[in-house]
C-alpha cells in the first residue's frame, strides 16, 4: 500500500506540512508531526538537515543549522520515524539533499526507508537527469520519488519528470528558494495549468505559501499545498512550540 497514491486519489483540499527533523529540539520531531496530524495536515515532509542547503531560504537554513547543532543525524531521524509510524498512518516523505544520502549509500538509505515505512523522497539537488537510477530503485521498493518542476521547466520536461516520478511531483511556485514571496497570480495560474496539462501524475505546490487563503487557492489549481518556512518561522525552543504549531496548522487547514 502506498499512502501517497491513496491520498491523492481523494478529491479534497490537501495541506502538506514540512518540518525540519530535530528542530527546535532534537526530540521535537515526533511531537510536531503528531501535532500536525491532529491539526489537519494530510501529508508530512520531514526535512533532513544539511550543512549546505542551497535551495533553502534563511528560515529553513537556520532551522537546519539548529537541528544539526542539536545533534540530529539520519540514524536518529529513522528512529524517530519508526516511533511516529506506530502512532499515525499519514503519508510521510523525507526531504533533503543528496550528499547525506550518497554518504549513507543509496541502497542502505532506501532499505531504511522501507523498514521505517517512508512513503516518498524529495531531493531538490537530484534533478531528473542525474536521478534516474535513484528514482527507479525507490519505485521498485514501493517508495515514491517526488521530483520537482519549476516555472521555467518546459512542457516536455514536465511530462518526462512526472513519468519518472510516477506518483507525485512537486511544483516550485517561484523561481527561487524556500520562503520567498510569491509572484503574480496571473503568471502562477498559467504555470500551474501548464503543469496540470503536462504532468502524468498529481502535483503539489510549495515555496512561499503562508496563509489559509493561499492553501485554498493553490488547491484550486493543483492537488495540494506545502507549507514549511512559515511554520518553522513561528516556532522555537523557548516556548510551547507544539501548541504554537497546533494553532498555525489549524488555521492553515480550516476549510471555511
Amino acid at each position: 500500500m502506498n499512502r501517497i497514491r491513496n491520498l491523492f486519489k481523494k478529491d479534497k483540499d490537501k495541506l502538506i506540512v514540512f518540518l525540519t527533523a530535530g528542530y527546535p529540539e532534537i526530540n521535537s520531531t515526533e511531537k510536531l508531526v503528531l501535532a500536525a496530524v491532529e491539526s489537519g495536515a494530510d501529508m508530512i515532509e520531514i526535512g533532513i538537515p544539511f550543512s549546505d542547503p542551497q535551495a533553502d531560504g534563511p528560515i529553513i537554513q537556520k532551522a537546519s543549522e539548529k537541528a544539526l547543532s542539536n545533534g540530529i543525524t539520519l540514524d536518529i531521524i529513522f528512529q524517530q520515524v519508526k516511533s511516529i509510524r506506530k502512532k499515525t498512518n499519514i503519508p510521510i516523505s523525507l526531504m533533503g539533499y543528496y550528499n547525506p544520502i550518497l554518504k549513507r549509500g543509496i541502497d542502505r538509505f532506501l532499505a531504511d526507508c522501507v523498514v521505517n515505512e517512508i512513503d516518498g523522497i524529495i531531493l531538490p539537488d537530484l534533478p531528473y537527469d542525474e536521478g534516474k537510477e535513484f528514482c527507479n530503485k525507490a519505485k521498485q521498493l514501493g517508495i515514491s520519488p517526488i521530483l520537482l518542476v519549476a516555472p521555467n521547466t518546459s512542457n516536455k520536461r514536465i511530462e518526462e519528470i512526472s513519468n519518472l516520478s510516477n506518483d507525485l511531483i512537486y511544483a516550485v511556485s517561484i523561481l527561487g528558494i524556500t520562503g520567498n514571496d510569491l509572484s503574480s497570480k496571473k503568471e502562477l495560474i498559467k504555470y500551474l495549468n501548464r503543469v496540470k496539462a503536462n504532468s502524468s501524475c498529481p502535483f503539489i505546490v510549495g515555496f512561499g505559501i503562508k496563509t489559509n487563503d493561499d492553501v485554498k487557492w493553490f488547491n484550486k489549481y493543483s492537488n495540494g499545498a506545502v507549507v514549511g518556512s512559515h511554520i518553522l518561522n513561528h516556532i522555537n525552543a523557548d516556548e510551547d512550540y507544539v501548541l504554537r504549531a497546533n494553532e498555525i496548522i489549524n488555521s492553515l487547514s480550516k476549510s471555511s
Binding site: Q54, A55, P127, Y128, T153, I161, V172
Partner: peptide, 20 residues
C-alpha cells in the same frame, strides 16, 4: 555530453537552474 568525468561532475542543482 552530460558533463561527467565518469562518476564525477554532472549537474546536481535545483530544477530551476537546469534550463539556465
Amino acid at each position: 555530453n552530460k558533463g561527467h568525468f565518469e562518476e564525477y561532475g554532472g549537474k546536481f542543482v535545483p530544477e530551476t537552474l537546469i534550463p539556465a
